[in-house]
Design a protein around this nucleic acid. Structure first.
Length: 416
RNA sequence: GGGUCGGUGCCCGAGUGGUUAAUGGGGGCGGACUGUAAAUCCGCUGGCUCUGCCUACGUUGGUUCAAAUCCAACCCGGCCCA
């Protein structure tokens, strides 16, 4: 049975793959969709997120986009905030035990996540549809996990075996090279699987690295007498380096909250090899209709993704500004470009150059600023600063000037 | 619980009593170059309004003129045995 295009786009794995009859709604997703439609019952599509950080980046957004597609097709998105599991730490992809977070930090993260996903915004602008009734259910898994008692936990633990756990790649690697694995980490896949039971998921979305956990959900649902969910896996987005997965700790991310210019300029530099993956996974664009020239294609991709987030106007502006910056006109002709402002209010005058850079937030420390100046990477209104000790008497001497660090960082200084 | 090995800067990893923020790699940042990127080459890579002063080699205490380097206790981890 054919899957609709919106569903199949970018898909790398779907299970069960449909060994049973072509019309078996437990084996064929297509059949399940048809069944739902006939019954007038939307499917419950689970996506779990662990609120362990504060910024959502494009890598995460692949899954949210797919979830949104289900919403738009009339199904119910069940977004699970892993407020309880975040406190254990998902061992997936980690080479060491993840730090456990306290409850307040988790809750704060959860709120910023929802905000970034578009809570309170009209659905045309938001990543998820928060508006249409019945299309979204936001659940925190502490709701059912916090109340489990020991006999229930033991029951869960009985479902899997050490062998199965060690078959999981991350555990196997860590066990193999002698990095510690805490026992509570074995609980993670079980608890996440239990989420599927709690929300009676028909289908779970996840990255390919989540296969083990999603499969575990099926086992648990079966154990608790439910129909097992389908697993729908999407690729892990390569980061802007084009090699490693997009991840905050690797510094190769593009954040959802980034301004249009930095979003666009990061994207237009992504290696050619991953441009098509970005297009497939992060846009609805028709790849065949895009320019074949690699550089043009790159730009089209950057423009399209920026537009989805910030609107056509801002994206076009960002493209123009980016071109101008690369051309090296910045600093003088950048007056109208999107140069972020930096206030001089916190600076104590007279200020020496190296201190200024740190005080204004361009450099992390004054020592770093000193080195940057000595390295010849700092300009003020286009003129290279040579002496880190150069002194500025007052804010008026700097007001309105553009401070530049390297090729990418610009700040318009503003007094007051 | 016993035995044993180990814990060094963002990461990996040298150093095992002596003027030194501490070799080397990776990564990062800056410069040159280029269709952006990559590759390559060069520089920087603890903090401080800085020609000096602080803080650093798991933690705490000790020995010494002097310790990342020696000693003790503690904490954390690997492996083997229970």
């Amino acid at each position: 049975m054919e899957l609709p295009g919106w569903l199949a786009r970018g898909l790398v794995d779907l299970f069960p793959a449909g060994s049973g009859g072509a019309t078996d709604p437990d084996q064929q997703l297509g059949a399940r969709l048809a069944e739902a439609e006939t019954a007038g019952r939307p499917l419950r599509v689970k996506l779990g997120i662990d609120p362990t950080g504060s910024d959502i980046h494009l890598g995460h957004s692949i899954l949210f986009r797919k979830l949104r597609a289900f919403q738009d097709a009339g199904h119910t998105a069940v977004l699970i905030i892993g407020d309880f599991t975040a406190r254990i730490g998902d061992p997936t992809g980690k080479s060491s035990t993840r730090v456990q977070l306290d409850a307040e930090a988790v809750e704060a993260n959860a709120r910023t996540y929802l905000e970034q996903l578009g809570q309170g915004q009209p659905r045309e602008r938001a990543l998820l549809d928060f508006e249409t009734p019945g299309r979204l259910e936001v659940r925190r898994n502490s709701e059912w996990l916090a109340g489990l008692d020991l006999p229930q936990v033991i029951d869960l633990l009985g479902i899997s075996t050490v062998g199965q756990m060690l078959a999981k790649e991350d555990f196997a690697n860590r066990y193999g090279c002698g990095t510690p694995i805490s026992l509570h980490e074995f609980l993670y896949p079980l608890l996440q699987g239990y989420d599927s039971v709690a929300v009676q998921a028909d289908l779970e979305l996840g990255g390919t690295d989540q296969k083990f956990n999603v499969a575990m959900g099926r086992d648990l649902q079966r154990h608790f007498g439910q129909r097992p969910q389908f697993g729908l896996l999407l690729p892990i987005l390569p980061g802007t380096d084009g090699v490693q997965k997009m991840s905050k700790s690797l510094g190769n991310t593009v954040g959802l909250r980034e301004d249009p210019l930095s979003m666009y300029s990061k994207l237009e530099k992504v290696p050619d090899a991953v441009v098509d993956a970005y297009l497939t996974l992060l846009t609805d664009a028709d790849l065949a209709a895009l320019p074949g020239n690699p550089r043009e294609r790159q730009k089209a991709m950057a423009l399209e993704i920026t537009r989805a987030r910030h609107g056509s106007e801002a994206a076009a502006q960002a493209q123009a500004d980016a071109a101008r910056l690369v051309a090296g006109v910045a600093g003088t002709g950048a007056a109208d470009a999107e140069v972020p402002e930096a206030s001089l209010a916190a600076v104590n005058f007279p200020a020496r150059a190296f201190y200024l850079l740190a005080a204004v937030g361009v450099c992390a420390s004054s020592s770093e600023a000193r080195r940057a100046i000595q390295g010849g990477g700092v300009r003020l209104d286009g003129l290279k600063l040579a002496d880190p000790n150069q002194e500025f008497a007052d804010a008026a001497a700097l007001d309105g000037k553009v401070l530049q660090l390297g090729k990418k960082t610009f700040r318009r200084l503003v007094a007051g």
